[in-house]
């Protein structure tokens, strides 16, 4: 058990932090929702009603989709784009999907390689892209969830202010949908771009996200 906790500390601590933050979001979101209800002359709702509302759902999903979009773009973007000097980038001469020798694929697989790296055909093609496929799938699923919950929350708001509700397709053209979507995308793109460039010049001793403290600024793909 101690060994499991030690070996999985990163995944466990972040998962626990996620649950605590989600709990905090539920409490703050409920209070914020009710203060708006009161200011509109409507009745406040219970925590149970808030947690089963599309208003809570859309607030959760809009952030999830942008995180998975970020990972999808980063995983795919770093195959083809480099940032000279960044530990987040591969070396400029390695641009592209690289050779089977470098990637330990097919007959170049090691005895300890995952079976699907060696087997060839569709299974190796799928496994070779599985990280991007899962991140992309989660992005599409969470963006869809955002659109459906956002649509329901938008219509509830429209009805409470005596305006016409819209269809799901209609909601995809509404400013509310794109405001929620793009405010999350812009922050992810800024954070990733600035991080990739900052890590050329800045160091965090001991972090695999950083180059070694004494590494040259021009050293690319040299993680500490």
């Amino acid at each position: 058990m101690r060994r499991f906790l030690h070996d999985n500390a990163l995944g466990l601590v972040f998962g626990l932090g996620f649950l605590l933050a989600l709990g905090g979001q539920a409490i703050a979101g409920h209070a914020d929702f009710n203060s708006q209800q009161i200011s509109h002359g409507a009745e406040p709702i219970s925590m149970g009603a808030y947690l089963t509302s599309s208003s809570f759902g859309v607030d959760v999903a809009e952030n999830w989709q942008s995180e998975y979009l970020q990972f999808l773009l980063y995983v795919l973007g770093t195959v083809w784009l480099v940032q000279r000097g960044s530990p987040e980038s591969k070396k400029p001469e390695d641009i592209g999907t690289e050779s089977d020798v470098d990637q330990l694929v097919g007959r170049h697989a090691r005895p300890t390689s995952p079976a699907w790296a060696r087997i060839g055909g569709v299974r190796t093609a799928l496994y070779s892209n599985s990280l991007g496929l899962v991140m992309g799938g989660l992005f599409l699923l969470s963006w869809t969830a955002q659109s459906i919950a956002g649509w329901a929350a938008y219509n509830a708001d429209q009805i409470s202010t005596r305006q016409d509700p819209t269809t799901w397709l209609g909601y995809l053209g509404e400013a509310d949908f794109w405001n929620r979507t793009l405010q999350n995308w812009q922050s992810e793109l800024l954070a990733v771009g600035s991080f990739a460039v900052a890590a050329v010049y800045l160091r965090q001793r001991g972090s695999p996200e950083s180059k070694p403290v004494g590494a040259e600024h021009a050293d690319t793909a040299d993680t500490g």
Partner: peptide, 30 residues
């Protein structure tokens, strides 16, 4: 690595169930 595989499956399951829950809330017009 059995425990790690379990953690990976737990993460994916929670994410997919969470998103399914949000989709159902929206589809029901809650």
């Amino acid at each position: 690595m059995t425990g790690t595989r379990w953690l990976f499956v737990l993460y994916l399951t929670l994410i997919v169930l969470g998103l399914a829950y949000v989709i159902v809330l929206g589809a029901l017009g809650r």
